[in-house]
Amino acid sequence: MDNVNLNEEGYLTDFSQWSKEVAEKIAAENEISLTDKHWEVVDFLQKKHNNEEALSIRGIKKSGVINIKEFYDLFPGGPLKISTKIAGIPKPKSCI
């Protein structure tokens, strides 16, 4: 991908470089093509991140946007890991 900085795991290091096109490219690399439902989740994750709220599966469960089964269906593999990557926000972390 041109003009965006990614860390070694493929996460954006600067959210200002995020755009829908960038999101689509990251999604494509993970073999996902983004539907309206995906965008809803991306929007939800970005809002949570901006409010500095921790992202968790529980947050998804209570989001009202999507249930957990759908979340796994939309982002197969590691849904939280892949969806945050597409949303251009950092991967959820522990302290070490």
Partner: peptide
């Protein structure tokens, strides 16, 4: 763990 590893920060993963 629900996280991506027992250690999730790059420096700590490398060292530990």
């Amino acid at each position: 763990t629900p996280l991506g590893g027992a250690f999730t920060k790059p420096k700590a993963t490398e060292a530990l």
